[in-house]
Nucleic acid binder design. Structure first.
Length: 876
RNA sequence: GGGAGAUUAGCUCAGUUGGUUCAGAGCACCUGCCUUACAAGCAGGGGGCCACAGGUUCGAGUCCUGUAUCUCCCACCA
């Protein structure tokens, strides 16, 4: 008996094989003559830790990579991390705050020291966690968006785009995050439905006693910055105000009443307060009508000197305060409840403050064109395809990209201001900037001290959009062998939530910089949710600890659980019970190993039955391999896994192993053993991309392997495309077995009780080779062929073959009923088919193949009915 | 407000160009079994008007139209 435990224990095995793979350098890739298959990892935040979303994303990538690695491709999966400017900065700021330190007090340099210390402490933890998951990344190529080379590339691209005139600096209305105190891009704003209030406020009219403009607003506090009141020119209700001045309440400032068709007459009061500094629409009205713009907020969202009534108070505190004051002044008409959409910062989740500020922008108009084309023309495929619409819509309506962030952690913008002024030069280093500045001013006495670098850093995505290029040093060493060989990469695996942030921008960068797409296929998976469809979140506590799951169930189990529920594009409803299924499956495989390891070999030739089983199993594996190939080609990974699962559990373990398993204590023929081990290897190879650890372990134990032998290195054989006739034959036997087993249960035979089986069939030869197999599966004492019905027996039919199994007590009545029921069913079916075939239009219009099938169905059914009717007759 | 998608078994989903007995899978459920690899297992079983109403067709989960419900994305009505 085997000394292996009855339960599979992944804990030792997984670490052992991961180390061995690394030791053998199996994941490292160098260009060679094979076709390349490369994937760049969506770089996780450098200080991030593994969560279920990562597990999904990276398992998918590992499956693709391992599969390609096993099928003759030179695979390269590049790992790395993103500096994640705003996310990391907010963590570092929070940590410093705990120590009572403000970044402004310690200055940029000191602050960055803290930030790097933080990065060194937490950075890359997630990459180690990916190893626990089994990810076969090329670790030698690990990159980071703030590595020196990478940073240089980012700045060079900035300079290049600037020289091309695509980057400009200007005062624009931007989305201001008052918590992070930085501008953010449109894509970083999430709109949330907020149950707010609509305040109706009286604005006195200059020179008109008791006459008021009544405006409706959701943000009364912004009246401090009002510079006009607007009405629609056709609105009779307010016609008397035309040309007058309104007095801003509390502030006492007279402002013009302007007319503009933008004002809706059917919303609110038809009278609009205009605050050009704090609302994008008002901003545009302001430009159109030449209004002043009064910025009343400090960067942190408190009131500044311009709104001196409430100096230093927070915007939301002021809202309450101002409403109270308006009420006391008798200027508040009413307050209505009002639901509206309010933009929130995706990072800090505070309401966005539209704010005028000086920022750097990238013109998108030209960059968008090739990116749009590539997807429209199918040069880049999105999977599933429906995301094309989302992608297209965004690109067609794109705004210029606000590149600057008022943060310190990141790539500092390579713009250098000359002393005193707004005049600046753009260059990727201080030295070049100085040279440039000297040229520009004609003053060769300028020194570095005369230049001040722009304090802002670049949006994180303005570095990660270069990821597929610069991980192969496509910018820092243009034309090097890696970039030539691996670029464009083949597949990008990521979530649809970052199509705009990242995917689209990588495509733009690819065409702009390399003149070529960055990848061929984009596989978009859904969000991981819990089984109640809720997002996984810390506050709900519904997000399992990925590492604990791996500890409890094994990485293979976790991977399988994740993949079983992950068709492309659908959200993943994660449920621990799926992981259990994964673990159980590991156990199943493990026990198959125990079985074959326990066998003694003998040199007798394989029995006929074994040879039959062997022929069938190979045909079955070949057929299923084609199905699995097809699933992979279409990125149907959960289907591919399910196919492997069923191939191993049902066909290999349940049918094949049971067929060839020798009786207890007896040896197995060497020939059968050899075939069995080969089948085991083949199915493990199919499964390996999904469950790398257990497949490696079992594969290693199946035979004596040489050092350096790994399952990964096995090239999967090309299966025959021709369907072997034995497959169909076998399905008949399977059906027979299943039906007789059911019969046994129905008729109260215990598993140990033997039955006799009499077969009445025109095709005895078809069953003869399988008789010993049937004996084994059905626990029979006799199997015999008969020409007539067998007395005192129960009966069942498979196709037109009849089985009789003698019973102690036969209920002929019930037997008759059973037959009648079957006859009824087939008669109905026959009728349907006959009707179809007698329909001239059907015969005339349907393809010949379909008609022929219907005819065959008719004939088969008639034959079945004959058999049934004869049986019924004999029973009487 | 605009757009996309979904609706098939108790749950999560497949269902390819409309055509075999096409109504499927996994899980869950029910019944029987501790049968010398595996109870984390084995054997068997029940369960669905394919959201609703029309239409096209010899033929419709599959194509078209409408309705209902849900999900997601985009969008500056204060």
């Amino acid at each position: 008996m085997s000394t292996l435990s009855t339960k599979y224990d992944p804990s030792q095995i997984e670490d052992k094989w991961y180390a061995a793979w690394l030791e053998a350098n199996l994941f490292h890739s160098e260009p060679d003559e094979r076709p390349a298959y490369s994937i760049v990892i969506p770089p996780p935040n450098v200080t991030g830790i593994l969560h279920m979303g990562h597990v999904l994303d990276n398992t998918l990538q590992d499956v693709l990579i391992r599969r390609k690695r096993m099928t003759g491709f030179n695979t390269c999966w590049v790992p790395g991390t993103d500096h994640a400017s705003i996310a990391t900065e907010s963590k570092v700021v929070a940590k410093l705050a705990e120590e009572g330190i403000r970044k402004e007090d310690i200055g940029r340099e000191k602050y960055l020291e803290h930030a790097y210390a933080w990065k060194d402490k937490y950075g890359g933890i997630i990459l180690h966690q990916l190893k626990k998951l089994g990810c076969s990344c090329d670790w030698d190529r690990t990159n980071f968006t703030m590595n020196p080379d990478y940073s240089k590339a980012v700045l060079e691209v900035f300079c290049k785009l600037f020289e091309k005139g695509l980057i400009y600096r200007g005062i624009r209305m931007v989305n201001w995050d008052p918590k992070a105190q930085t501008a953010i891009s449109d894509e970083e704003v999430n709109y949330k439905s907020i149950q707010g209030k609509l305040y109706h406020i009286r604005y006195p009219i200059e020179g008109m006693e008791d006459s008021y403009a009544i405006v409706a607003t959701t943000r009364p506090e912004t009246l401090l910055g009002d510079t006009a009141v607007a009405i629609n020119p056709v609105d009779d209700r307010w016609a008397h105000l035309k040309g007058k001045q309104a007095i801003v309440p509390l502030v006492g400032r007279p402002v013009p009443i302007i007319e503009d068709e933008y004002v809706k007459t059917d919303f609110g009061t038809g009278c609009l307060k205009v605050t050009p500094a704090h609302d994008i629409n008002d901003y545009e009205l302001g430009i159109k009508h030449g209004l002043d713009s009064i910025d009343i907020f400090s960067d942190d969202g408190t009131i500044n000197e311009s709104g001196d009534l409430y100096l230093g108070q927070d915007r939301f505190a002021v809202r309450k305060e101002i409403v109270k004051d308006l009420e006391e002044a008798g200027l508040l008409v009413k307050i209505e409840p009002y639901a509206h959409e309010v933009g929130h910062s995706e990072r800090t989740d505070v309401p966005i403050e539209p704010k005028l500020s000086m920022q750097w922008f990238l013109k998108m108009e030209e960059l968008v064109k090739p990116a749009l084309n590539a997807v429209n023309e199918g040069d880049i495929k999105l999977i599933p395809g429906r995301f094309i619409n989302t992608y297209r819509h965004w690109l067609e309506n794109i705004q210029d990209w606000c590149l600057s962030r008022q943060l310190w952690w990141g790539h500092q913008i390579p713009a250098y201001y000359l002393k005193g002024g707004n005049d600046y030069v753009v260059a990727s280093s201080l030295e070049e900037a100085l040279e440039e500045a000297q040229k520009k001013t004609g003053d060769s006495s300028l020194t570095a001290k005369d230049l001040t670098q722009d304090p802002d850093v670049l949006d994180t995505w303005a570095s990660s959009w270069l990821w597929p290029i610069e991980v192969f040093k496509g910018l820092s060493e243009p034309g090097n062998p890696d970039i030539t060989y691996y670029y464009p990469t083949q597949t990008l695996v990521t979530g649809p939530d970052i199509i705009f942030f990242w995917v689209a921008r990588m495509i733009m960068a690819g065409y702009e910089i390399m003149g070529e797409k960055p990848f061929e296929d984009v596989y978009l998976h859904g969000l991981v949710r819990d089984k109640k469809r809720r997002k996984m979140s810390k506050s709900l506590g519904n997000s399992p600890d990925a590492l604990k799951l791996i500890d409890d169930f094994g990485a293979d189990g976790v991977r399988m659980g994740m993949l079983l529920s992950a068709p492309a594009g659908n959200d993943i409803l994660f449920d621990e019970s799926l992981v259990e299924q994964g673990r159980n499956f590991c156990n199943k495989i493990w026990n198959s190993l125990r079985l074959v390891k326990g066998w003694e070999l003998s040199d007798v030739p394989a029995s006929d039955q074994d040879q039959m089983a062997i022929k069938w199993m190979q045909a079955r594996i070949d057929a299923e391999s084609l199905v699995i190939n097809d699933h992979f080609e279409k990125y149907r990974l959960s289907d591919a896994l399910m196919a492997c699962f069923k191939l191993i559990r049902d066909e290999f373990s349940q049918w094949y192993l049971e067929m060839v398993k020798p009786p207890y204590g007896e040896p197995i023929s060497r020939e059968t053993w050899e075939a069995t081990i080969s089948f085991f290897e083949q199915v493990l190879e199919c499964l390996h991309p999904f469950m790398p650890f257990i497949t490696e372990e079992v594969w290693q134990q199946l035979r004596d392997r040489k050092e350096g032998d790994f399952i990964v290195l096995q090239q999967q054989k090309k299966p025959s495309e021709v369907m072997h006739p034995i497959l169909e034959e076998f399905e008949l036997i399977k059906e027979l077995v299943t039906k007789i087993r059911a019969f046994r249960v129905e008729n109260g035979f215990s598993p140990k009780e033997q039955i006799s089986l009499f077969l009445k069939t025109k095709d005895e030869e078809r069953f003869i080779p399988y008789t010993s197999l049937l004996e084994k599966f059905l626990n029979t004492d006799t199997i015999a062929f008969v020409k007539e019905q067998v007395e005192n027996s129960g009966s069942l039919r498979v196709q037109t073959h009849e089985c009789f199994i003698p019973l102690k007590a036969v209920d002929t009545g019930a037997e008759r009923e059973k037959l009648k029921k079957e006859i009824q069913y087939y008669e109905g079916f026959l009728q349907k088919t006959e009707k179809k075939l007698s329909n001239e239009k059907f015969v005339a219009n349907a393809p010949e193949k379909v008609v022929a099938l219907e005819r065959k169905k008719l004939a088969d059914t008639q034959e079945k009915l004959n058999v049934l009717r004869e049986s019924l007759l004999q029973l009487n």
